[in-house]
Design a protein around this nucleic acid. Structure first.
Length: 437
RNA sequence: GUGAGCGUAGCUCAGUCAGGUUAGAGCGCCAGGUUGUGGCCCUGGAGGCCGCCGGUUCAAAUCCGGUCGCUCACCCCA
């Protein structure tokens, strides 16, 4: 009670860190399986890197300050600008497409609540240099396969998919000028949380006429086939719908078709998306999106980097961990010991320590009771430590050159020659090795 | 920034409405019962500025005011 972590920042106790590590391991493993390589950058960047493109409202949520050299700096709130810089610097020399991922810790100064903290870890996975729809499918498939790797299936989660190009075509057809597109996207993004009148008013402000507003709202309820029908004569919409249709075909071929759903209302709040956008959602419960991403073909250039097409996503650890906990998929983390060495009297202590050392040298996790308490206490300590085996050394055993090995779960016991266990990987008996050699 | 709920042991919580001996329980921790065998059981122990400050009162965990913190929701969400 004397102190706690800063608001919105987390202490990771061993059981928490075990889950976090499992999440990281799974992220990295699936990314590796997809052929992505990991990179990282500085957690502290020039403030200007975020203000230039993001606007002043983001600055309010930044951890920003002046460093001792008078530089305006900020803890990174997102990885994309760093990624843009790094990938642009090497892009000319890298084989395309570039498949990179990272697991940065990101920081945002905002009110913590369920699923939101002031720091979190986020898997960022991107493909750069490939504008085809296959790259869109590849990143979505990777995101879905990550959730599958945690034991979630299509009954648990869904990938909601849409296209900004498709939505832009519908908005233009409704009278929204290019200058009003971004406002209209924002209105659609908030449509689920706001009432109809608010959305209508925002769309009107963005430039849509009355009939157009009705058509936009109708569009958000349509499936892809209905969109095609309603906009059959519109070349832009049809082209975007074709590409989306192709994306769903590809996801089907990945074997992930049952995860994929078209959601016309989805546009994502971020301004920089240019094509496909998607989010992964828990089908039950009221969690926030687990993951969000899409195609951002103009972003790298607009951040001052190379003009390269790109698609990717971010997946945070906070909502994901909540989901895994809810579903009981946090797993039994391997925290226990392999071996606990019990010695009956002080006579056996030196040998016990040599045995512990030999076990450790061989790669097993091993411990003994530092306090040399009663045998009963030592077994208790073995139990608490989660030991799978207990190796007992007493006068009897030592005189016969064996240890009594007890399997803790079954209680089964057998004698094992000490030489067998004290043989080092190189074949040299540990018993012959001098301490410290 | 706005609103609501909640702050008592390491954890989960009773006790607060109706102020009154030394503030409790379960779990966990330590020790003993048990110096050749863990889990179960029994016994004992450690561990509390009852969030903090002030007020009312003979007396405050309890009532009042303020304040800080946490949680959830709104706002926002790269």
């Amino acid at each position: 009670m004397s102190s706690s972590s800063l608001k919105g920042f987390r202490d990771f106790y061993p059981e928490d860190l075990a889950l976090r590590n499992r999440i990281f391991d799974t992220w990295r493993e699936v990314a590796r399986r997809y052929g992505f390589v990991e990179y990282d950058g500085p957690p502290l960047e020039p403030l200007e890197m975020y203000t230039r493109k993001s606007g002043p409202e983001i600055v309010e949520q930044l951890y920003a300050f002046e460093d001792k050299g008078g530089r305006e700096v900020a803890l990174r709130p997102e990885m994309t600008p760093t990624f843009a810089r790094m990938v642009s610097a090497r892009a000319p020399a890298l084989p395309k497409p570039i498949r990179w991922f990272s697991v940065p810790q990101l920081f945002r100064y905002e009110q913590p609540q369920k699923g939101r903290t002031r720091e979190h870890f986020q898997l960022n996975l991107d493909i750069v240099g490939e504008e085809g729809v296959a790259a869109d499918a590849e990143v979505i498939a990777a995101a879905v396969d990550i959730l599958r790797a945690f034991g979630l299936d299509a009954d648990d989660v869904a990938a909601r998919i849409s296209s900004r190009r498709l939505a832009a075509g519908v908005l233009r057809a409704a009278g929204v000028p290019d200058g009003g597109l971004e406002d209209a996207f924002q209105a659609l993004d908030k449509a689920e949380r706001r009432d109809r009148d608010w959305v209508r008013e925002e769309l009107r402000r963005a430039g849509a006429d009355d009939g157009g507003i009705d058509r936009i709202l109708a569009y958000t309820e349509m499936d892809l086939g209905e969109v095609r029908e309603a906009y059959a004569s519109d070349g832009d919409v049809t082209a975007a719908a074709d590409r989306l249709g192709r994306l769903f075909e590809l996801l089907d071929q990945y074997g992930l078709g049952e995860f994929a759903e078209f959601d016309a209302g989805l546009v994502r709040g971020l301004a920089y998306y240019t094509g496909v956008v998607f989010e992964l959602w828990d089908r039950r419960g009221d969690l926030r999106a687990i993951c969000g991403g899409g195609r951002y073909d103009d972003l790298l250039a607009s951040l001052g980097g190379r003009d390269l097409p790109a698609a990717g996503f971010g997946m945070g650890d906070v909502v994901l961990a909540e989901l895994l906990r809810e579903r009981g998929l946090t797993g039994e983390e391997e925290q226990g010991l392999d071996d606990f060495v019990v010695f009956i009297s002080d006579e056996e202590r030196p040998l016990a320590m040599r045995l512990v050392r030999a076990l450790r040298e061989s790669g097993r996790s091993a411990a003994y009771d530092l306090e040399a308490r009663s045998v009963g206490r030592q077994f208790g300590a073995a139990d608490q430590a989660g030991a799978r085996r207990t190796l007992v050394l007493g006068p009897d055993e030592v005189s016969r050159g064996v240890a009594l090995v007890r399997e803790m779960e079954s209680g089964e016991e057998r004698e094992v020659p000490l030489e067998e266990m004290m043989e080092l990987p190189d074949g040299r008996p540990a018993a012959a090795a001098e301490p410290g050699s």
